[in-house]
Design a protein around this nucleic acid. Structure first.
Lengths: 265, 265
DNA sequence: CGCGTGATTGACCTTGCTCAAAACGAGTGG
DNA sequence: CCACTCGTTTTGAGCAAGGTCAATCACGCG
């Protein structure tokens, strides 16, 4: 499905896992780790819960950058778990403009809401070459029935998503361009750190400036100038696909960033 | 707690329920109805689920307009159910600007996320004189354990919230001022209709233009001009606290409104 | 070397913000 | 009934953030 050529095109974000064979298997240990890390600072995760989640049957699928995974209006009968790489949720608004709602990384389940909402209100696309696991709704429902604590963890995951959505409303609604960009970068770094990526306030983001623009509700041109400013003030370094935060406190200040909403310990 | 004077101040939105005595009781039938209506088009609600939810013990509380109900940073040990009136979620961003994240009406549970997220990332305030029920987390957890279908309904409720948050991101991120206002009005009408309020595309909204402004991320002045335009084009009529949509199709067109995300039937 | 994607810049223009002043009820004290 | 206050809506004028358009640059590839 994915050719070697796809890798050669441009240096892409470093993969955490080696490219796995597609097909059915149990939840990869490493993936479950990402999900656990996101929550374990706040929820006590028993071995039983960990085991139950890790035992979920998933069908692996490798995605090429730009692949549309779920389309707005679709009625999925399963949910996605991201194993490696980055996907984003988005939809076309008004005058054919695109709005991105979130960037999702390893351990995230970007369409878990499809478990109870029949129709997708947005699409999901791979930002870079990625690997996902597909879990049938039936398997999730079965797990939830047998293990309420696991259900609570999944529910909590969707609640964290919602908290992030709220923060994004505030970001686009009440912050200036420079601030919006700084805030977004802080969030991506912080979320990466939580699951064990983003060492040294550095993260790999394979999107273009257009992706940033559609996420913060600005034009590409303005994003470009904002990034230029953040670089010139020595707050970040940008060498696609690597973004390194040079001055965390300074960037958080500019971005009005307080990570409380992420409940990351 | 609430004086007659509070009512005399200004014509407030018509109350659905007579002012109830404060104190402990079961979930009022009428309230549960609002919650059920929001979901019954999409979920099969058995009598058992209805009964279980209706049996939840709530402590009634009457609120005066402007009352702060839950503060950002708080760690609630119970959840709110709105019985009558309107509350809104908000927080202060950046340069002391306020962002409103949602308006919540009868049947909504605006801080249900506190069940699994320890700390509130935003505050909740009463928009008008309102009545709420407080349900302890313990009671909710107990219900969920005994009745998984009821748990799913509550989960679904938080997922609908998230869908609305996403739409608001798109609204502030990618729509122009006039369009944002139109979209917000459409949403409020549509949600009101779903639970049996908003007859004839008319709804009671007791907020000021500043509330609208903080919801759509614009200045009050600009909101004022946008409303003026919507009125002059005969799309709406505005006579606080009543808003009447004169031309639904036209308003939806201007607001780029598609109610799919509300899953309202 | 020509091509294609994405980053960068300059010039100009629009939307929407800020500041400030009126205009409007509705309630209050006289 | 009248003057006065308070909160809110409405308007005008000037300004700034950010959008649009159009080149140009950079770089990796065939």
């Amino acid at each position: 499905m994915r050719s070697i050529a796809a890798f050669a095109t441009r240096p892409t974000a470093a993969r955490v896992l080696p490219l796995a064979a597609e097909g059915e298997m149990k939840m990869p240990q490493r993936l479950a780790e990402a999900l656990f890390r996101k929550h374990e600072g706040n929820v006590h995760l028993t071995d039983e819960v960990r085991t139950a989640l890790t035992a979920l049957p998933v069908v692996l699928r490798n995605l090429k950058a730009g692949a549309l995974v779920v389309r707005e209006g679709a009625k999925p009968n399963g949910a996605i778990v991201i194993i490696d790489g980055c996907l984003f949720r988005h939809k076309i608004v008004a005058d054919s403009k695109r709005q991105i709602f979130s960037f999702q990384i390893a351990g995230d389940m970007p369409d878990l809401q499809s478990l109870f909402l029949k129709e997708m209100d947005h699409s999901i696309t791979a930002l870079d070459d990625a690997t996902i696991g597909m879990i049938s709704h039936a398997a999730v429902l079965d797990l939830m029935q047998k293990n309420p604590a696991a259900a609570h963890l999944l529910w909590r995951d969707t609640l964290l998503d919602a908290a992030i959505f709220r923060e994004w409303i505030a970001n686009t609604g009440r912050r200036q361009g420079l601030s919006r960009m700084a805030h977004l970068i802080c969030e991506l770094v912080r979320r990466g750190e939580t699951i064990g990526l983003s060492p040294n306030k550095t993260y790999q983001f394979d999107g273009t400036q257009t992706h940033y623009a559609d996420a913060v509700g600005m034009s590409v041109v303005h994003v470009n100038r904002a990034l230029k400013k953040l670089r010139s003030e020595r707050l970040i370094e940008w060498d696609r696909p690597t973004i390194k935060v040079l001055d965390w406190a300074g960037l958080a200040e500019v971005g009005d960033f307080d990570d409380a909403y992420l409940e990351a310990r």
